[in-house]
Design a protein around this nucleic acid. Structure first.
Lengths: 223, 223
DNA sequence: CTGAAGAACGAACGGTCGTGCTTTTTCTTT
DNA sequence: AAAGAAAAAGCACGACCGTTCGTTCTTCAG
């Protein structure tokens, strides 16, 4: 193998193929959150974008690669829409509850009308070993770890009662959020978000110390 | 149109085609809980059963019909495996928690190695309007309504604190159970069941009156 | 024993899938 | 403006999809 020159130029500007790829992946995430990653077809994606099937295919080389890059793209979108908005919140319970509510907002975003990409992907691939499942499982681990992390920070700051298990807390918070997304998608049930919010706040309030409750109240997040 | 004679004989014995159909649907539920209801292919199902594609197809007439009957078959299996085992439990909180734990057992049943059929189906069809989605959504409503019902009975018997919202309680219980199934499928994480059980018991304990707690303790279900 | 009806079959249809090729268009660089 | 590279398109392939058709085997009533 000989050394290859870098194929991207040094400034921020992207070459044409890269821009196209971005557009493809954005649409791919959109379609896959409706029809699933397996139901996502190369021909369908191409015609949806008004390009040729073969031209699109050349960007990836295989459907598996397309799926993997779609997962990656979805995870970047998730980061943008869920994580970034609460990056500056006060660490601890306040940031934890802010993250949860950012997550709930992401669910109802009209731009994600097919529902949370990952909620669909988790269930689609949970019984199908392979690289796609691995990528998706890794993403789920990252998400859970983030919640646990925020809970741990809250505990370290004395905002949660001694003996609180951050992983148990994360489990329960993730559970109610996930179900809210499901019910919203399946039934268009707006109330599900209210129930999730109630559950999150009640749970945090029950597990919080006086200082933790003060922090929540200060951020306008009492129950 | 002329009147037709009934095509089934009067005693319990079934005609040949009916027995075959049962076998087909059992396998269909099994395959669909891995590959999804859309990924379920008629040819694949036939070869898995060692029968011809056209012979199998004749039983249904269309893939849509196969999907609908598969949903129906899955819901009968669910009833058998989840509801029936707790049918004789003491109504109220005891039956409620028994139902939840029966549900958790159903998740880990080696016979359902592809995970809960419905958990997969909910997410697969939640953004695809049509008869299949309607059938699946109806099933979810039935399930939720059952939990709400048990919670209501518990409330009526004075086992839950006044002001307890049965629907909110049902939401939270369903949430943790669903997530346990997801994590079990995605990561093979046994601990998820422990977390779900902890969450269920803690939640019920917190919402129960003294009489409710006594009932739970009497059934060996304290936390 | 005969004959009709139901159940299962094999072959084939049009269509779409993912995937390779070759050619043409479009951009970038000199 | 010309040359070279990158991107997109065109076309074709084998496999599989749901579906239809005509035929064979099984079952059971008359």
């Amino acid at each position: 193998m000989e050394a290859e020159v870098a194929e991207e130029n040094q400034d921020g500007r992207r070459v044409r193929g890269d821009r196209t790829k971005r557009a493809i992946l954005a649409k791919a995430v959109d379609l896959a959150s409706v029809d699933g990653l397996e139901g996502l077809s190369i021909g369908g994606l191409a015609s949806e974008l008004g390009v040729s099937k073969s031209g699109l295919f050349a960007h990836f080389g295989s459907k598996l690669e397309l799926q993997l890059e779609t997962v990656q793209a979805a995870s970047e979108l998730f980061e943008e829409q869920v994580w970034q908005p609460v990056a500056d919140a006060e660490p601890g319970v306040v940031q934890l509850v802010a993250l949860m509510e950012s997550w709930l907002r992401y669910f109802r975003d009209p731009g994600n009308s097919g529902g949370c990409f990952f909620s669909n992907a988790y269930h689609e691939f949970d019984a199908r070993p392979g690289p796609v499942r691995d990528a998706i499982a890794a993403q789920k681990r990252r998400w859970m770890a983030a919640i646990v992390h925020h809970a741990q920070v809250a505990a370290d700051r004395g905002q949660l009662k001694a003996g609180t298990d951050p992983e148990q807390l994360a489990f329960e918070l993730d559970a109610v959020g996930s179900l809210a997304n499901s019910l919203w998608q399946l039934e268009g049930d707006e109330k599900a978000f209210g129930r999730a919010q109630t559950a999150i706040r009640t749970r945090l309030h029950a597990g919080a110390t006086a200082s933790g409750r003060r922090a929540l109240a200060g951020a306008g997040l009492s129950c």
